[in-house]
Deep mutational scan, measured.
Amino acid sequence: SKGEELFTGVVPILVELDGDVNGHKFSVSGEGEGDATYGKLTLKFICTTGKLPVPWPTLVTTLSYGVQCFSRYPDHMKQHDFFKSAMPEGYVQERTIFFKDDGNYKTRAEVKFEGDTLVNRIELKGIDFKEDGNILGHKLEYNYNSHNVYIMADKQKNGIKVNFKIRHNIEDGSVQLADHYQQNTPIGDGPVLLPDNHYLSTQSALSKDPNEKRDHMVLLEFVTAAGITHGMDELYK
């Protein structure tokens, strides 16, 4: 796709999030870079409003799984890469995230190029959380598991539907599940690639910047598309 050509090198990323969870309002600002050749993201996020009212790991899918245009699609799968094909005009990404036995996040993001920078601007609203639950009670460990993110075409809306389940580790050794339902639709009216069913395999590492006084998260992530085999004719070339 034409959009794919915008991702040949390292691309700067800007992320802006405004959130409200159970009436606790907050903002997060992030910057870093993405390299789609390797499916690599390096980002640093800062809570610009003081202390973040929710655990950082609960925002990873909104912040970095928010820029799935940096996923590495192998050559034989490039015609299934909706995310890059929607660029530079970008796409709207909407999600509902259900935390098992707790509340939910609803998010709406616009992901697009502004100049040479890929920008992810998000509004997040969280409701029905227990004040002493795993999320508002800050009981999650500061780490992140690997996940597969399942993608299918949504021809009606000229976009994709995505769903997956995140496993958050809790300090007591148990797990907090979070079910994600995602819809992506193009902002522009140019042609986009509608994929066959496949998935993104994601690995994320969270860390801290020892010199950063503000509440923050440093993230390194690798994302690769998989799940579609080479056609038989490919094998015999």
Rank of each mutant, 00 (worst) to 15 (best):
N104H: 15
L63P: 00
N120I: 02
K161R: 11
L220V: 15
A226P: 13
V11A: 02
P191H: 11
G231A: 15
D154G: 09
I46N: 02
N211K: 11
W56R: 00
N143H: 03
I97L: 04
G159C: 09
L41M: 15
G34C: 01
K161E: 12
N134S: 09
P57H: 03
P74S: 08
G188C: 15
N158Y: 06
K208E: 05
N163H: 09
D18A: 07
P12R: 05
M232K: 11
I46T: 06
V162G: 08
Y65C: 00
L59R: 01
F164S: 03
I135V: 12
A226V: 07
T37P: 10
V60M: 01
K125N: 15
E89G: 11
K213N: 03
G66V: 00
Y38S: 15
L52Q: 00
D35Y: 02
S201G: 06
P186H: 04
Y91H: 01
N163Y: 12
S201R: 11
K208Q: 06
E141K: 08
G103A: 03
V67L: 08
F99Y: 05
A36V: 10
Y150N: 08
F99I: 02
E234V: 12
M152L: 10
T58A: 05
V28E: 00
T107A: 06
D196V: 11
H180Q: 09
V218D: 02
T224S: 14
T8P: 09
H147N: 12
G173S: 05
S207G: 08
G34S: 01
F26V: 06
F7I: 04
N158I: 05
A86V: 09
N163T: 15
L194R: 07
V111E: 00
G3D: 06
S204T: 14
S64P: 00
P53L: 03
L6P: 07
D215N: 03
I151V: 10
H198R: 01
N163G: 12
N22T: 01
P12S: 01
L177F: 10
N158S: 10
T117S: 07
F7H: 12
H180R: 00
L219P: 00
G173D: 10
Y144S: 08
K139R: 13
E33V: 15
G3S: 12
P191T: 09
V54G: 00
F83C: 05
P210T: 11
A225S: 05
K100M: 06
G190D: 07
V175G: 09
F222V: 11
A109S: 15
L41P: 01
D132E: 07
G32D: 00
H80P: 02
T58S: 08
K213M: 11
L177R: 08
E212K: 00
M217I: 04
S204F: 01
K25T: 06
I166L: 09
Q156P: 09
N120K: 03
H198Y: 04
A205D: 06
V175E: 11
F129C: 04
M77T: 05
C69S: 04
Y65F: 00
M152T: 12
L200R: 00
Q93P: 01
E4V: 10
Y91F: 04
K157E: 14
T62P: 03
M217K: 01
N163I: 09
G39D: 00
D196E: 10
S85Y: 08
M232R: 15
T48N: 06
E221G: 01
I135F: 03
E4K: 13
G188A: 02
D116V: 07
G50D: 02
H147R: 04
M152I: 13
D75G: 11
P74T: 15
H230P: 15
Y38D: 09
Q93L: 01
H180L: 03
P57A: 08
V149A: 07
M232V: 14
Y144C: 14
V223E: 01
F45Y: 13
T96N: 11
I228M: 14
G231V: 15
I160F: 02
I151T: 02
R95H: 00
P195T: 05
P191S: 10
K165M: 14
V60L: 04
P74H: 15
I228N: 08
V28M: 01
D20N: 11
K157Q: 07
K165N: 12
F98C: 13
F99S: 01
I160G: 01
K106E: 07
E5V: 04
G115A: 03
I97V: 12
P195S: 04
I166V: 12
T58I: 02
V10M: 08
K106M: 08
T48P: 02
E141D: 14
V21I: 10
V92I: 12
G133C: 14
K2E: 08
H24Q: 15
S71N: 02
N169D: 15
N211D: 10
A205S: 07
V15I: 12
S174T: 15
N134H: 04
H138P: 02
R121S: 05
K40R: 12
N197S: 14
D20H: 05
N104S: 12
L235M: 05
V218A: 03
I228F: 07
